[in-house]
Nucleic acid binder design. Structure first.
Lengths: 214, 214
DNA sequence: GCTTTTACGATGCGATCGCATTGACATGGG
DNA sequence: CCCATGTCAATGCGATCGCATCGTAAAAGC
């Protein structure tokens, strides 16, 4: 009746990754709620409902624990976007991928807002810790290229207005999504308002189409 | 030969506001450098080069000190924008005001970056502390109205493309400025790159004109 | 001139911090 | 069966935390 019982009677070790993920989830909740100041080993242990010794067993230092926390945040975001794509009819184009990612960022699901708030809490640390910087911003180039390609496709199909610079438009789109996502996560704006603004902008750049969400 | 000597031999009290500002400046430096986690009474005292007793004398609690810090940040930003306007030829229109504010946000002057990084460090606290929220985001409505009005003017003068929604465009412009400003402050993007993106966008919304800066 | 107020510096308190150590217990391999 | 290993809970350490208190020296008020 221990929490780390074995599955199917197969005698095995404790699921290390699951334990780490449980603790990292507590880190995320605390960071999202009150910033990194509130993240101490004792608080994390209490939030995760485990002993402090357990936390220290799975993370050698606080730094390592924090890094694992922000990694979990990004992984969750990717998972949620992938789930969203899976719910769409098959054969999604790149524009659907872009729109799904933006929808996720601007949505008001509590977990999304938690991840975004936690990410912002890590910003200061990203300046001093290259690994945190990489986790937070490492995927930006891929997302940028995705947006730029979508713009180019819209141009090729004649849906986009003339004279657009796909590279600059990509920067605008993601900057907009970032900023609106943060505003939603911190309660400055409603999710609906942010999605309306995003849809307004995308309609002018990619042409007006019927889309679920933004 | 004390640091709080009187000016002109006039026996007066210590300049309370100057003392508080000096301490708040230290708070800003620490928050910008390493986040609010690094802001303790002892660290602030050391950074400001004063005793801990002095810090406690001018701020009854840490909370009050932090609030004064973020107020100083916003005040500095406004001052820097006002200075920028004063350097322009007189009779500035509202569009110049908007552009000056955006220029300041995207500029790579160390003090601007410090203020932006410090502001981001306060985001988590803004959720729990209504006063911090007000200081950080209280001016947003004014800035929004400014941008919307500038867009409307550009429309009236026939410089803007047809079919623009000034309210939405205002949201886009400020979201863009916020996001790019943060990216510059945290070293994700160069100031030049951010200004180029901003100029690119403004040219499409307000019409292309020759402007200093963005 | 004497008291009150202002402006600190210094020090101490209890709580909490990250981290290291220790030991109990359980498991699987030899 | 024994022991190496993995998995923790418990505890203690030195440092640091925010804050309260105390003492002092100087100016302000009477």
């Amino acid at each position: 009746m221990r929490s780390h019982c074995y599955a199917d009677g197969v005698p095995r070790k404790v699921d290390v990754e699951a334990q780490r993920a449980g603790i990292a989830a507590a880190v995320l909740r605390l960071a999202a709620r009150s910033g990194l100041e509130a993240v101490s080993l004792r608080e994390v242990a209490a939030e995760a409902g485990v002993s402090m010794g357990r936390v220290q067993h799975y993370f050698r230092t606080k730094e390592e624990m924090l890094l694992h926390g922000v990694r979990l945040a990004m992984r969750r975001m990717e998972t949620r976007i992938a789930d969203r794509l899976r719910r769409l009819p098959d054969e999604v184009g790149e524009e659907q991928v872009l729109r799904a990612a933006i929808d996720e960022v601007l949505g008001d699901h509590p977990e999304t807002r938690q991840v975004i708030r936690a990410s912002v809490a890590y910003y200061a640390r990203a300046q001093e810790n290259a690994e945190v910087f990489e986790v937070l911003f490492g995927d930006d180039a891929v997302l940028h290229d995705l947006a730029a390609h979508v713009v180019r496709t819209a141009q090729a199909e004649g849906r986009a207005p003339a004279g657009l610079d796909p590279e600059q438009e990509a920067r605008v789109v993601w900057s907009l999504a970032d900023s609106l996502g943060i505003k939603v996560a911190f309660g400055q704006t409603s999710s609906e308002q942010a999605m309306a603004t995003m849809r307004y902008h995308l309609d002018r750049v990619l042409g007006c189409e019927a889309h679920p969400g933004v």
